[in-house]
């Protein structure tokens, strides 16, 4: 940090205040420049026919409809698989287990899962789902990899929101004769739903923006995937291919703009949910 000993304390106070304000403003500027540029270049490309038509000539022209479906498809599989597993694990950790060594190990496991680089997931998915289980390049392989990646996010957020449920809720339910599981299912889980939903959306955000992990798992088909065993090409992967192989700059801008819009919508939805949830919790 700046050594301002020669200056009077008041002077250095003023200077540092300026530095802190500047760094806050710079962070906002970085976001504005990146998002602004992508949307400025990409939005003119995005229209109904871009969204709802098939790519022509491997993406040189035409739209991105199969990629949108692919993205939604793999993300859907990821969430359907990861949500019950993540919430189940969170219920076990917060309601059943004490602070045993096993629980610490499980937490460390979830932390590790959250930090493994996505390309390592890609290798694992290739070796395990695609080759060992023989699923091949398909929506299912990609969805399962993304499920593993979304799992720690859902687990961690769900655990926090379960722990935020007041213990008087549990005591009240147990006092009128409900069993432990009845209490969890009818009282604790419903009270934690808004928080769990946030966790699921955060997991979804991670899944929908991932490309490296599914690079060797979904194939790169340009057609709309119908069955879970069809190959697919989600949006981030499409953008990567368009940009690195120099296929079409315009379509790459358009795809990037669609992705950015998706992320913006997800962020706004999460924030609204969190705000409403915390107001509700504070309101009592």
């Amino acid at each position: 940090m700046l050594n301002l000993k020669i200056m009077s304390p008041k002077m250095s106070q003023k200077i540092m205040k300026g530095v802190f304000w500047a760094s806050g403003i710079l962070t906002v500027l970085i976001l504005l420049v990146i998002i602004g540029y992508i949307l400025y270049k990409g939005l003119p490309v995005v229209n109904m026919s871009f969204i709802f038509s098939n790519p022509i000539d491997s993406g040189k022209s035409g739209g991105i409809f199969p990629m949108i479906i692919s993205s939604l498809y793999v993300t859907f599989i990821a969430i359907i698989v990861a949500t019950p597993l993540g919430v189940g694990a969170a219920v076990y950790l917060s309601e059943y287990a004490g602070e045993t060594n096993l629980v610490k190990l499980i937490r460390f496991g979830a932390e590790t899962l959250a930090s493994i680089p996505s390309i390592v997931y890609g290798l694992f998915g290739l070796a395990f789902f695609v080759v060992y289980l023989g699923l091949g390049w398909c929506v299912l392989s990609g969805g399962l990899i993304l499920a593993i990646m979304a799992l720690p996010t859902i687990l961690q957020v769900a655990e926090v929101s379960l722990e935020a449920v007041p213990s008087s809720y549990r005591e009240g339910s147990l006092a009128i004769g409900a069993t432990k599981w009845q209490t969890i299912y009818n009282v604790v889980l419903p009270a934690a739903v808004p928080g769990i939903t946030t966790g699921v959306i955060l997991g979804l955000a991670r899944a929908i923006s991932e490309a490296a992990a599914i690079l060797f798992a979904v194939g790169a088909a340009l057609s709309v995937p119908i069955s879970i065993f069809d190959p697919a090409r989600p949006l981030p992967l499409h953008l990567y291919i368009l940009a690195t192989e120099g296929i079409s700059l315009d379509n790459a801008y358009g795809t990037a703009a669609v992705l950015v819009l998706l992320v913006l919508v997800i962020t706004v939805v999460t924030n609204t949910l969190v705000e409403r949830y915390s107001k509700k919790m504070m309101g009592r």
Partner: peptide
């Protein structure tokens, strides 16, 4: 803003 920065897909950053 910081949450949005965290959420933007890495491919979009690479493209930029």
């Amino acid at each position: 803003v910081i949450e949005t920065l965290a959420g933007i897909p890495s491919v979009v950053y690479g493209f930029f």
